[in-house]
Every structure is written in C-alpha cells, then in structure tokens.
Amino acid sequence: MERSSVFDMIGPVMIGPSSSHTAGVVRIGRVGVKLLGGVPDEAEIIFYNSFAQTYEGHGSDRAIVAGLMDFDTDDARIKDAFDHAKDKLTYKFRSVGNASTKHPNTVFLRLKKGDKKIELEGESRGGGVIRISNFNGFASGFTANLHTLVVTTDDAQGSIAFISDIISHDDCNIATMTVSRKGKNDVACQIIEMDSGINDITLQYIRHIKWVHDVIYIPVI
C-alpha cells in the first residue's frame, strides 16, 4: 500500500460535500477514462454498500459522471456534470447493498468506447484517497497517486523479470507491483506503480514485445 501524502491530509482542494463520496469518486472515474483510453460513450455504474443508499444525496452520481468526463476534483463543473455529459456519455446507475466482502465505499464501472470495453472496481477510502481493487477481472491495488503501468501479457515464464528490467533501464523505481492471471498459460496482468514517469520510447518497446497484449500508462491523477 502506497503511503498517503501531506496533501491527502490537507487536501485535496475539492468541490462537493464529502471527499469519500465526491473527490474520491471523481478520481475513480478519471482512472476509468485512462484505462479505457478516453471518455466513454456508455457507462454502467454500480454503487455498493455505504454508497448504495447515499450516492444521490452526496452527489456521487454527479461526481462519477464528472470523473468519466475527465474533470478534476476541484472543477466547478462537477455541480452540473449531468448537463455537461449530455450528448457525450450515456450512463445508468445501480445500487447494491450489503456486499460484505467489499470496502464500504465501492463503485464498479463497466465502460464502453467504440468497440473497447473495460471493467474496473474502485474503493474510495476517505479524503480523496482511492484504491483500484480490480481491473478487467484482475486483482489490483493501485492508488493513482503514482505513475502506474498496466501490462497485459501471456502468462509466460520470465515476463515479470523482463518488464521490470526494461523499466529499470528507464531509471524508474518500482514502488509496488501486483501480478495476477486468469489461469495457467492464460492471460496475466502486471500492475506496476513507479516513483517517476516513464518515457514514451520505453512504452513503445514494451508494446512491441510479441507476448504483450496491451500496455496502459496512467500518470499521477
């Protein structure tokens, strides 16, 4: 788990009545935009547990739509996010209570842009701090407070060492790394949090490796 910043404690500067229900939710939406590679055309949004009953009252519905429009946490347009999303993004909300295995403030997103579809699950942990607990069925735990690389690969021997070696040659220190796979010799996903940004040429190199399916780079959000 990545450590919090002084500016998670004295911050963020934000719009909306509750940091768990607004600032954190905006950030989860923005991670969704980065993972999808752009603002979605369609979004299915499920609010869990504490979120399920209070998302309207706390403005979490506006916050997630604002995040999916890639608005920042202190953007004054959050208040009117539904108006701004008109003609750009269709969305529907669902609530699920009592999901005891999930964090009290969990939101699930199923996003679509053209042919591309992704799913992610984020936890809003208070004060705008988030944790992305799942991406496309792969367990994860990144916070978007660091530079994050999401690499989907074949479940091949040596792939972890290979990718981390490339990153180290770009002078990036790995802070945390989560690796999981669908099954043996199936698809695996490496989620790597780094202390500094990565160069585009390194990303291109990783993309060209034949057992790499997809590379997503998320700078600090």
Binding site: D8, P12, V13, M14, I15, G16, T22
Partner: peptide, 12 residues
C-alpha cells in the same frame, strides 16, 4: 452548498 473547500482531512 457544492462550493470549493480543502478536505482536511475530509470534506465532511
């Protein structure tokens, strides 16, 4: 009232 604040430590 949906104005701008510092969440310190939280908005609440």
């Amino acid at each position: 009232c949906m104005g701008r604040v510092v969440a310190a430590p939280t908005a609440g």
